[in-house]
Design a protein around this nucleic acid. Structure first.
Lengths: 193, 193
DNA sequence: TTGCAGATTGACTAATCACTCCACAAAAGT
DNA sequence: ACTTTTGTGGAGTGATTAGTCAATCTGCAA
């Protein structure tokens, strides 16, 4: 029932929804098409998600959870702050490149009115780790003394931008790696003292 | 007939559409509600725009045109490149703050499948001025020698990010001005040699 | 075997929506 | 004055959609 132990069918529904939402937008994809793409009856969809909106929000939370899970693997509490930031930055970038559809969905969701359906605490939870890291950097006087929220926004938007660039230009893996490294150094130069 | 000499009613329709699209999203705002909000009959809307999609795209082009018109006022071809960039950057930022709804709409539009409905040349035209400026900067060895597209993406995403931050935190005008100035210096440090 | 709870189905419905159509009004032209 | 073009209105329409429901299926515990 809870998304943590998602059924096969539930996964199929989420996958189908993700694909179609990114392709056609939220409202332009009927629930019937989602069900068909998932190989599931119409009613089954509504057995798991009471409304279409609920499905959309659930999909967002699911993706964010998968991203977070992917980011926490490297337990690198001992590294210097810059390295921790770098791991975070590059990790997020790589995840975005390996999950382009998910990335596009998040972008679409975040600049849509659906964002308001998310509980504020849920939004906060997503960026908690990054915020802590930035706070640590500021306290250690490694990062510029500016509002944490501001630095976080700069970092996030930069991640979005670079990802978008990589998605549209599709460089070779080698060129991509180089560009990502360079990007981080540029961004780091911007936010560090 | 052409949007350059928009009728009163046409303007009302665009204004109403803008407001409702930002509030509820594209598909969640019926054309009937747009007409009502504009104080116009249902049929009148379809007299000016054959389809809802056409209206959406027209609205995007209209906003982009207004932004461009606002950016070209300062004929500052004689200034050093940094100052030209700064004027551009700060101009865009101020426009965004004075036209939050328009800004939100553009953001929503750009991360939606509607973007594909725009002719590629139309997209290119919008960023032409910025691209020329960046090219000039690279040739003069003032900016880092990197793909123009990449620098442009970095700048754009930064603009989006800062705007978003300002919109959510709503600082005092003085604090806002200071933050904008600082932001530019940070970004400039990132992209200049 | 029996019984039961949750899963699954797909036909069905009430509502909604994009868009049409035609009547009429206001300019614009002649 | 009169014809044409253009703008405006709003009821109407066919298609589509989110969500329902009663029936069937599945696995499992007693």
């Amino acid at each position: 029932m809870i998304s943590q132990s998602a059924t096969d069918k539930q996964r199929e529904i989420l996958n189908a929804a993700l694909k179609l939402f990114v392709e056609h937008g939220f409202h332009a994809t009927p629930t019937s098409k989602i069900a068909k793409e998932a190989g599931v009856a119409n009613g089954t969809l509504f057995h798991y998600y009471n409304t279409k909106d609920e499905l959309i929000v659930a999909l967002y939370v699911d993706i964010k959870t998968r991203l977070s899970a992917c980011m926490n693997v490297g337990e690198n509490g001992h590294l210097p702050i810059k390295e921790k930031c770098k791991a975070f930055f590059i990790g997020a970038l790589n995840w975005g490149m390996e999950n382009m559809t998910e990335f596009r969905f998040v972008q679409q969701f975040m600049s849509s009115p659906y964002l308001l359906m998310l509980a504020p605490e849920e939004i906060q939870k997503q960026s908690r780790v990054a915020m802590d890291l930035i706070n640590e950097g500021i306290k250690a006087k490694v990062l510029k003394k500016m509002p944490v929220e501001f630095i976080h926004t700069l970092l996030s938007s930069q991640l979005f931008g670079i990802n978008q660039y990589l998605m549209t230009t599709k460089p070779t893996p080698a060129a991509q790696k180089k560009l990502i490294e360079e990007s981080f150094e540029m961004v780091w130069g911007m936010i560090s003292v």
